Deep mutational scan, measured.
Amino acid sequence: DEDSERELEKLRKNNASKEEIKEVLKRLGFSEDEAKKLAEKAG
């Protein structure tokens, strides 16, 4: 959803580590696997 998109955008701009991105995604309700895949894509 839009909030998670914004959250990811912010992380990308701040050069967050894949680990940080994954944690945020998991907080947003993604499964471990989904979060890992998305973090890879974002990283």
Rank of each mutant, 00 (worst) to 15 (best):
D1I: 13
D1A: 12
E2V: 13
E2Y: 13
D3H: 10
D3K: 11
D3F: 13
D3L: 12
S4M: 15
S4W: 15
S4Q: 10
S4D: 08
E5G: 07
E5P: 05
E5F: 14
R6M: 07
L8H: 01
L8E: 01
E9P: 05
E9F: 01
E9A: 12
E9H: 09
E9M: 06
K10M: 11
K10Q: 09
K10D: 05
K10S: 07
K10E: 08
K10F: 11
L11A: 05
R12N: 03
K13V: 07
K13N: 08
K13M: 08
K13G: 06
K13I: 06
N14S: 11
N14A: 11
N14I: 09
N14E: 08
N14L: 13
N14C: 15
N15R: 11
A16M: 12
A16N: 02
S17K: 05
S17F: 05
S17I: 04
S17V: 03
S17Q: 04
K18D: 08
K18V: 14
E19T: 05
E19D: 09
E20Y: 10
E20Q: 10
E20W: 12
E20V: 08
I21T: 01
I21L: 06
I21D: 01
K22R: 11
K22V: 15
K22P: 00
K22L: 15
K22H: 09
E23H: 05
E23Y: 00
E23N: 09
V24F: 15
V24P: 00
V24Y: 15
L25M: 05
K26A: 05
K26S: 05
R27K: 11
L28F: 05
L28W: 04
L28P: 00
L28K: 02
L28T: 00
F30Q: 01
F30D: 01
F30L: 07
S31Y: 02
E32W: 03
D33H: 07
D33W: 07
E34S: 03
E34H: 04
E34V: 09
E34Q: 09
A35I: 12
K36P: 02
K36R: 13
K36Q: 14
K36N: 14
K37T: 10
K37V: 11
K37E: 11
L38E: 04
L38T: 04
L38V: 06
L38R: 05
L38C: 14
A39M: 13
A39R: 03
A39G: 02
A39Q: 03
A42G: 10
A42E: 11
G43W: 15
G43T: 13
G43V: 14
